[in-house]
Design a protein around this nucleic acid. Structure first.
Lengths: 271, 271
DNA sequence: GTCTATAAGATGATAGAC
DNA sequence: GTCTATCATCTTATAGAC
């Protein structure tokens, strides 16, 4: 089964790193009716997705051509259009392919953590639950997973509103993590929790990008693709940051101790 | 004066977000002999650079065309080639234009900090000295500066080896910061210091990208372009992370206290 | 499903007039 | 320095044979 196309309106400005889909033309790969190859083998559509995932993750949307993707996938360029209609359609499916699994996996990690830890939740636990399922796949997964997460990092660093709407798919996970941290730090102000998330997600993004800059600047002492070393350190580093900024709800960042003159004016209004 | 071109070898693979310059053809804008306009006015070459800075920072190298740059700069497309020879040449000059100033400004911040604080250096001080000159310009500078830092963030998140070599220009600043942190935390292991830098630079990169994701996920409580709020928080957050990971040189990340059985095998070998 | 062929337009870059 | 005009190539995407 083939995808319907609607590219009549070809003049929507210039390409973005992540493009805005044509109105109402969200292409979706047809899985119904497509015969499955023998196990171990991969069919053309999957090879195209793998190739696209690889190239997009390294050069972004605009740095890749359909011809390149087809070449890497060992198929004809027209076939990529047959399956995914447009380049944007291909890009979308690449992102969607693993998104749901990642989301539910991370959500279930929170279910498990909260079920097993009851009232003994910690900041480290919240951060680890948010971050580890992701880092584990980026570490132990096949090259496709590594590419996918690098692509996610690219999108998360992209300032376009399309990239923003893609990333917002994962927003419930952020709220989930913040809710757990709040249980560990009942005095935390909502605002500070979100700032801490901002810093955390930045570290996470760069870690998933594995740029190699760390290797160079450290003279080979650390490697940016050494996720096994990153995991425990990132959890501890971020948890310490959360605790420092959020433990004392009456203290503003930079202050030595909890202020008393100003504290009364805004203390415990939200608990 | 015009730039010499060498594009005879046009087949160097496909575009990257940051392209590799043709061998020995590093274009450089000619400043000698170009008449300066009246103060307040900006000449064509600068308008082209401003426009390129703007567009590149939002869409990356491949997402921008020379025609677009020229259009935004209100000049003819051929003029952009006249000044910068190639698109890659334009991109390079955009990055080079402010790099030296940023570098020396941040280096001088360390000179000042070390001169005024003698033996009383702190982790917060080191982080603040590394981060604040940058964030201050991103906050108070004109729109050109904001675009420049967003572009730097894009490059820092790019995994291509060209992007890596661009960023390595700032490596001495990293070593400078780490040296100061080491004075504040004499027990710190070199390795942990670099991991902390990795997390810090990730947060910094995302902060400079100002993607708006924080705005959305926080329901408007925090804004990713509110650098005034970011500054003190980022310093405190990162300093806490450094201290947690680096204060005890004999403890591995995740451990509760300094291990004694393993500690002897690697303690104080580097001091 | 997969291929060949090709349309229709955009892109980086240059030559040459003024 | 700045413009017009243009080249050669590449790009997405489609039509239609098999």
């Amino acid at each position: 089964m083939k995808i319907t196309r609607d590219n009549s309106n070809g003049k929507t400005g210039r390409p973005l790193t992540v493009r805005t889909p044509k109105a109402g033309a969200k292409p979706k790969r047809a899985t119904v009716g497509r015969p499955r190859k023998a196990v171990g083998s991969v069919d053309a559509a999957d090879r195209i997705l793998d190739a696209a995932e690889d190239l997009f993750s390294k050069r972004g949307f605009d740095g890749v051509t359909m011809r390149e993707v087809a070449l890497l996938a060992n198929v004809d360029a027209a076939l990529a259009h047959y399956y995914f209609a447009t380049k944007q359609g291909l890009f979308d499916v690449v992102l969607e392919r693993r998104a749901e699994l990642v989301f539910s996996e991370r959500m279930e990690a929170f279910d498990t953590y909260e079920a097993t830890h009851g009232n003994n939740v910690t900041v480290e636990g919240a951060v680890a639950t948010f971050v580890l399922p992701l880092l584990e796949r980026a570490r132990n997964g096949d090259v496709g997973w590594k590419n996918y997460f690098r692509l996610i990092a690219l999108v998360n660093n992209d300032a376009s509103h399309v990239a923003l709407s893609i990333m917002s798919y994962f927003d419930p996970l952020v709220h989930r993590m913040i809710a757990v941290v709040k249980r560990a730090l009942p005095n935390a102000r909502e605002e500070e929790l979100f700032w801490c998330f901002h810093f955390l997600t930045g570290s996470l993004t760069l870690a998933l990008s594995r740029t190699g800059r760390l290797d160079r600047v450290s003279g080979g002492l650390c490697r940016s693709d050494d996720l096994a070393s990153i995991e425990p350190r990132m959890v501890e580093y971020c948890a310490a940051g959360f605790r420092s900024l959020c433990a004392d709800g009456d203290r503003l960042p930079g202050e030595k101790t909890s202020g008393t003159s100003r504290a009364a004016s805004r203390s415990r209004t939200s608990r």
